[in-house]
Design a binder for these strands. Structure first.
Lengths: 187, 187
DNA sequence: GATCCTATCTTGCCATTGACAAGATGGCAC
DNA sequence: GTGCCATCTTGTCAATGGCAAGATAGGATC
């Protein structure tokens, strides 16, 4: 596509990641085939191996990309906790493939250094946003507990939305529906 | 094993489902192989096809089993919302394979009548338990919204726990950790 | 400018898998 | 006892992931 630069045949690594995100987003990770990706990119069936080693390697790269993308999304959402929560759900829906892979450690090498680093970066931003959550319950309010509750509610809503498990009456705008749910915890 | 009854070689359908749950619980759905299941059961590689048609058919049966198991688990937990929430998380951890498949509709035929029925049964119990959740926010309190928030928080916590995404300091007792998080919403 | 070097990609190959077709086997109804 | 049907087996095929060995190109070095 974009003739930015090229070695042999173009920006293959990027093309493969893009194609993988598209396939997974449409049909799930189980439908992913390295050979299909190679066909889409117009290269031989063994070309992906050079960039990613194997299937897990490709998904590892996708997960890293996803964590970085999530961190950026949360940063862009600003300091408001509600906005950050909505942005989390919106990220899951817009970058469905990345989100699904990120939280499925059996699909990739979750213990790889790059993954741990990217995951930690996203976690830092997440925790920073949650710090604004008001405590509740009369007691002193455990910040870790509160952060976990906030993360759980947005992650759960996003997961259920992607799974198609939620009732139809919610409509087709995940941001709107998520906002209402998150308010239950925040207000 | 148990010589309860048998046609040709024993209780194959059940044996296959059990083996599938074991494999998925240990290595994830991606590692599931029909031929491996057949080997474990001591039958030929084509035997599973007769009971489930194909891989999606087997996972469909597993999902149905899972929804029924979840409904029973929630019933056993009693009327208390907190207890029901903890039971939901506990179910996800104890029946990891079922839980993972249930909310991954791309792996099976989620539109099958048996699935819709079992899913609806579990949903009924879930909604009944959530009915006890106190509303909040000064406004009239939307019961649907509240139920969604409760479901989201337990589902999110369970998913994050299974993904290994939660910090180690939570220990190894998901029930204990879940209770604290759910209290943030309930108390 | 020639040569080397390395990253990139290709061709060829093999074991495994899911799915299908056709046949064997055994219990059960009648 | 005979036919019937659910259950299971054997045989086969295309597709896949992964490995090994070779081809190709672009740049570095002299």
């Amino acid at each position: 596509m974009s003739p930015t630069r090229g070695y042999h045949h173009g920006d293959l690594r990027r093309a493969l990641l893009d194609a993988a995100a598209e396939v997974i987003g449409e049909s799930g990770p189980a439908a992913l085939s390295l050979r299909d990706l190679a066909r889409r990119a117009g290269v031989s069936h063994a070309a992906p191996a050079h960039h990613f080693g194997d299937k897990a390697g490709l998904l590892t790269a996708l997960a890293v990309q996803g964590f970085d993308l999530l961190a950026q999304t949360l940063r862009d959402a600003g300091d408001d906790l509600l906005a950050a929560g909505v942005a989390y759900v919106d990220f899951a829906v817009r970058h469905r493939a990345h989100f699904e892979v990120m939280f499925r450690p059996d699909l990739y090498r979750a213990d790889a250094a790059e993954v741990r680093a990217a995951s930690a970066r996203a976690g830092d931003v997440l925790r920073a946003r949650v710090a604004g959550l008001p405590t509740r319950g009369g007691g002193p309010g455990d910040p870790g507990r509160d952060a976990l509750a906030a993360w759980s509610i947005v992650h759960g809503f996003a997961t259920l939305w992607l799974a198609g498990a939620l009732p139809d009456r919610l409509g087709d705008d995940p941001r709107e529906a998520a906002r209402a749910v998150i308010r239950r915890l925040v207000d």
